[in-house]
């Protein structure tokens, strides 16, 4: 029968072993994987400006980006391809709430510069290699 000491060794051994593996994988991901997948060389000052605004206004409190966030407003990973920069700019600079189907977005009324920063940021996100996410809807072509 397992003794208390053996149980302690199981706990410590497993924790230490898997922590080391996790940290080693994380180092690889942070130093090589994410910079390559996100095309870090394309992260211009404008993209970073947009990233700061994304953070400051808690956009993921309603939207999802890379599938992360809240489920009140649309997923924005591919929004640049989906609606294009002109519509995005109109929404971001609007002084009245954008409200598709009555669901209101905060009317941020961003300046031109801020809106362009956010658009550049979302364009950059759209180009990240996300291992196949978001998937093309597999049943879309079956709809007649």
């Amino acid at each position: 029968m397992l003794s208390k000491k053996q149980a302690l060794l199981f706990f410590l051994g497993g924790t230490i072993l898997f922590s080391i593996i996790f940290i080693a994988m994380s180092i690889d991901t942070v130093s090589k994987g994410i910079p390559a997948h996100t095309h870090e060389e394309n992260m211009t000052a404008q993209v970073i400006h947009g990233r700061v605004l994304w953070d400051e206004n808690n956009c993921m409190g309603c939207h999802t980006l890379m599938g992360e966030g809240a489920y009140y407003a649309p997923e924005l990973t591919k929004v640049y391809d989906r609606v294009g920069p002109d519509v995005m700019k109109a929404i971001l600079t609007s002084k009245v709430p954008w409200a598709p189907h009555g669901r209101k977005m905060v009317a941020y009324g961003f300046s031109n510069e801020d809106a362009e920063g956010l658009i550049a940021f979302l364009k950059w996100v759209g180009e990240i290699d996300l291992n196949g996410y978001p998937a093309t809807p597999p049943l879309k072509n079956r709809l007649k």
Binding site: T15, I21, K32, D129
Partner: peptide, 16 residues
């Protein structure tokens, strides 16, 4: 610990 990986599937991290 390694289960953390389920948050890294589709968020810009490598496919491993």
């Amino acid at each position: 610990i390694l289960g953390t990986g389920h948050h890294y599937y589709y968020t810009g991290a490598p496919s491993y």
